[in-house]
């Protein structure tokens, strides 16, 4: 936690930076409680005079906006919220579990070659847009499009480099003597990992889990190309709030975005101290 006193100049710079970063958030929050007439009024309405929860209601009851004369909202967001939860939670659990095994293997047993960690990371060299189409082609030939299994598989593959590298940095930081001491005390190699290694890196394990969850929760590209009708996620659903008659439903989008932000804000707050450290991939040692 920062407790240092800031000079007036520093305060001003901080305030300016915060204003830039927080303005979109403010705008989304305000838009989410605006009635349809205020969504794209000109001049802009900063703070709605008649705040309403109708946008939030519309998320789960597509007909709620009819009282404002807006129809044609086809789909409830329930499926997208549940889909996001399912895909993100399962993919995060798998990614962290596999990443942990890989991290211990690389860090403690020297598995693979010295290049292994880099090769694992090289999967992140490609922008998702570049590999999304090949994925769709391969996935449709093996029947994995429009299924949560396919979406989870691709999420695990996409986040595994991060989970492996972050966890590896935490395992690297833990002196191996501590496991050896446990083995001298009579534990097997595996039990030494279970009773010593994992409890001692639990802070890092938690931070990694949260970080991977954020990545999965906000992923758009793969979900967009893989979801047809069976599956949906919040980012995909956000793009669907466009009607033929009323154009883009900014208020409803904003309401869903606000809902989607809640877990991110909680998670972000919980891991703020770990996040900076984890992102350096162990380059900085305490």
């Amino acid at each position: 936690m920062l407790t240092r006193k800031l000079s007036p100049l520093q305060m001003a710079i901080m305030a300016a930076a915060l204003a830039v970063v927080l303005f979109p958030v403010f705008w989304i929050l305000m838009t989410s409680i605006k009635p349809p007439t205020d969504w794209n009024a000109s001049p802009a309405i900063w703070v709605p005079t008649k705040p309403t929860l109708v946008n939030f209601k519309t998320l789960f009851d597509p007909d709620a906006l009819r009282e404002y004369g807006v129809g044609g909202v086809s789909q409830s967001a329930t499926k997208a919220v549940l889909g996001s939860l399912l895909a993100s939670l399962v993919a995060t659990a798998l990614s962290v579990a596999i990443g942990l095994l890989a991290a211990i293997g690389i860090s403690r047993y020297g598995n693979g070659s010295k290049a292994t960690p880099l090769i694992i990371l090289s999967g992140r060299m490609f922008p998702p847009a570049a590999i999304a189409v090949p994925f769709v082609i391969i996935f449709s030939s093996i029947g994995l499009t429009d299924s949560y299994v396919g979406l989870i598989a691709i999420y695990v593959a996409a986040t595994l480099p991060f989970s492996t590298w972050m966890l590896k940095s935490f395992v690297d930081d833990l002196p191996r003597e501590i496991e050896e001491a446990a083995m001298i005390d009579g534990l097997s190699r595996l039990r030494a990992h279970l009773t010593v290694t994992i409890p001692l890196i639990r802070g890092g394990l938690f931070a990694t889990t949260m970080f991977i969850f954020i990545l999965n929760w906000s992923e758009f590209m793969f979900a967009l190309v893989l979801a047809y009708s069976n599956i949906s996620t919040i980012p995909v659903q956000l793009a669907k709030y466009v009607t033929a008659t009323a154009g883009t439903l900014y208020g409803v989008q904003a309401a869903l975005a606000v809902l989607a932000m809640v877990p991110l804000v909680i998670v972000g707050y919980l891991i703020q101290s770990h996040l900076a450290r984890g992102m350096t991939f162990g380059a900085i040692k305490q």
Binding site: P175, E177, I178, E180, A181, A182, M183, I184, D185, G186, L187, S188, V196, P199, L200
Partner: peptide, 20 residues
Amino acid sequence: VPAGKRNVGLVFQDYAVFTS
């Protein structure tokens, strides 16, 4: 013989105390 069954104790340079 596995490390835990030799009845030999080792004190490490950097202690290897379980800080948790």
